[in-house]
Design a protein around this nucleic acid. Structure first.
Lengths: 205, 205, 205, 205
DNA sequence: TATGAATGAGCATTCATTCAT
DNA sequence: TATGAATGAATGCTCATTCAT
């Protein structure tokens, strides 16, 4: 399929069009999540954005930088979504269920461990530490919520970091598909209920 | 430059080395686990084996085939190790603790999800289904043990597949390292105890 | 990051900077001399000038044109400096010594042959002939001085073009650095004396 | 023009065919001399050799390495040719004339300074020092000849390194072409005579 | 006068794979 | 059984140049 041909030089400006830089970041994020760092080429990103590779490089000086930006943007978005959900006034257990359900419903499998491994292998030390900082901020959002509930007596006292990680690990079970592509539970709602119930049994007072 | 590693014990026949095919598979497995499919080239494998690329191709017709074989061999080995540990006559909880401790002690982070994702992206349908079958065999080993303990009344009745996956997911929490490279727990033994305790609270009768 | 360099003296009008076009040419000249045509990108020039690439193109339509202008400006400046030195009333030999010393003292190695080769490879025919003309003017300045001294009987009669080229070639010996970065002579003054002495032995009556 | 298509895999071996590695080096040397480091792409070399780029990389791991090898091979060849000429039993002046004539007759302009500058800009420190060593060996061949003639009393006592460099610099005058492509002298033989005569006037006892 | 945004072609390098020996 | 020599396609990245503003 032929791409719509583009003209040289600065394109005429179109109001209500998203800035190219944002399009690139969003597209790249989507591709990286689906296929991983090494399976996405800068050309792939460019084609998916309907611009040329050089345009990508105009905004992101290296592939590593683009990946770094994509990861950070993604983690910050997740952090925000976690925050919004956990800040509600519903019972904690219900908030957790909503959190799991929403994340399982996002078609893409957000696998933090995987991202961090690819980051560790492919990024520079500096880029990696930025990504680590972002990962930290994300986990801390959950940790703080856990600590608040411990104080309120909703859940038992314990290592909040450990709780945050076990929660995220359990959530990832909901993504599992067997060889035939079937998930463990029929709907995300059921998966969410079961997963949180499992978590709850371990953390209740 | 690395020299070819020699094996201990009485060498077979009058030769003093493992069959090349085995060396290749072991080396490749190690590299794939550490760096992932795309970050390991056939040349890397060849160099690490002290043979030429063509030799690798003599035994494994494509890189995908080599990865498939490596994954299957790895999962089968893990399955065996799980089996040996779970077959003992110790209390179930202690066996689980030993299982976690042993896997956390193996320096390499065995991240199943990651392997399966790389497999899904890079392997042919046929290769992928072989890998899935192998993954299944591995999980089923744990499932069967869970079912036996349910029957014995050691743990509560529940979805054994779900239990197997939650258990593996929780185990992976033990691998987590923060930005400074610090783990959540000081020793593997402590990590194992805490992780199994967390699991146990959810599955006890 | 480098800041835009400011010039000494009274600024023209109420602005305090040299015209951009001149800054570009001077900066480009410096870079081309140090690194050669292909090793200097338009972006390099732009960055070194603290303006954007598009600004460079506003004044110089192509890189070739910029190189042409830079070479011509440089050769004209050298021609002028040669003229000023040779026009003095000191003995010819002393003037030659001063000429050599001054050029060796300019930190940068002015290698005509090199510039002309890069010009021949990278410039258009028209640009190249402009550069050749400029080179000619430069050599002719020396040739004419040689002819005057032949007439005066200071040096022997001979092919003045040949003399001009041998003189410049001998001068370039003063730039030579060995592998450790050491020059053949300790100071430019000594180098100048030795080089002119060598030349003089060949051209004296 | 289409290239003769090549087949995959190892080509059938042909006796009396030069090894590919040698063809690559010779071709690359020729191209680098004519056009300089940056103006010759690995693809250019490949096409000129009628092989693919990957073949070039099979023998030379980087472009810098290829350039290094090419320069060293060239300088060693020149050193040898100098040696052979200077070792003859003819009068020294005649040997020098032959040396100049032979080098001017080789169509390509061997410009050491140029090569060394490109090397300095583009090569790694290690590669550069190899090239410097080779350059040294070449100059030393001339220096030693100069020293022998000083001892014999054929030429005056002086700094042999300086003499070697002035000699090479004067030789390069013979390559000069003006804007119309005309050389200073009508034949290489005449050029050689004039150049050596100029040198001789400075070094004679 | 000066810039920001974009292109298209090229470049060094890598890599899975092939094949005669 | 194992290798040496070669390919073709991709990949990350650079660069001269263009054009609307």
């Amino acid at each position: 399929m032929k791409q719509s041909p583009r003209v040289l030089g600065r394109p005429r400006h179109d109001e209500n069009a998203k800035p190219t830089k944002d399009i690139v970041l969003e597209t790249a994020t989507r591709l990286f999540i689906k296929e991983g760092y090494k399976n996405v080429s800068m050309d792939d990103v460019a084609k998916a954005c309907n611009v040329t590779k050089a345009t990508i490089y105009y905004y992101y000086p290296t592939k590593g930088e683009l990946y770094t930006s994509a990861l950070i943007a993604m983690m910050d978005r997740i952090k925000l979504s976690i925050l919004q959900i956990l800040e509600q006034s519903k019972p904690f257990k219900e908030r957790l269920e909503q959190l799991v359900e929403i994340h399982l419903s996002a078609t893409i499998d957000i696998d933090m461990k995987n991202f961090m491994k690819e980051a560790a292998i492919n990024l520079s030390e500096d880029q990696l530490s930025q990504v680590h900082a972002s990962e930290n901020r994300m986990y801390q959002t959950i940790e703080r919520a856990m600590e608040m509930e411990m104080d309120k007596g909703t859940i038992r006292k314990g290592n909040s970091t450990f709780f945050a990680h076990t929660f995220m690990a359990l959530m990832s079970v909901g993504y599992f598909k067997d060889g035939d592509g079937n998930r463990l539970f029929q709907t995300e709602a059921i998966a969410a209920k079961e997963i949180v119930e499992f978590f709850w049994l371990s953390v209740q007072v």
